[in-house]
Design a protein around this nucleic acid. Structure first.
Length: 134
DNA sequence: CGCGTGACTTGTA
DNA sequence: TTACAAGCCACGC
């Protein structure tokens, strides 16, 4: 078998291996996937890695959804998004009327990724003709 | 090196 | 509900 996988060559392999670990009938978000791959805060990378897959891949990419159980593919590629939905339903995953995955199928988050003071600076937009005129 | 864009996420307005 | 901002990574121009 493959003796080893592309070592640090790229984080993609890590993402793919993490995807293969997703239990059938369950789904994870891109953020969770990145976390499972040991790449916290790299949700976008997870999506990019999946986008690099080819159609005949054996990676169960359909078990990866967007935050809140949304199928991000539906927006970009409705066709692929439909394939994803069909595959998931085939695994017993339920969807709501909005087309989102039933949160019950979402793998629970383990621990709590502490969120260090990343307070995003609120877009302070000074309004003209205000009281503080000087 | 900078910019724009993309299967991302979260908080605020 | 949508739109925007900021953070993140990768790729093409």
């Amino acid at each position: 078998m493959g003796t080893q996988v592309a070592r640090g060559a790229g984080s993609y392999e890590r993402i793919y291996r993490a995807v293969r670990r997703i239990p059938r009938g369950q789904v994870v978000t891109y953020g969770q996937l990145a976390d499972l791959a040991g790449l916290p805060r790299r949700a976008r990378l997870a999506g990019y890695a999946l986008a690099a897959l080819h159609g005949s891949t054996s990676v169960p990419w359909h078990r990866v959804v967007g935050a809140g159980g949304r199928l991000s593919l539906m927006r970009r590629s409705p066709d692929a998004g439909l394939t994803q939905r069909i595959r998931l339903e085939n695994e017993g995953v339920r969807f709501d009327a909005r087309g989102r995955v039933d949160l019950k199928a979402l793998v629970r988050r383990r621990g709590r990724p502490e969120r260090p003071a990343v307070k995003r600076g609120p877009p302070v937009r000074p309004r003209r003709g205000s009281t503080s005129a000087t």
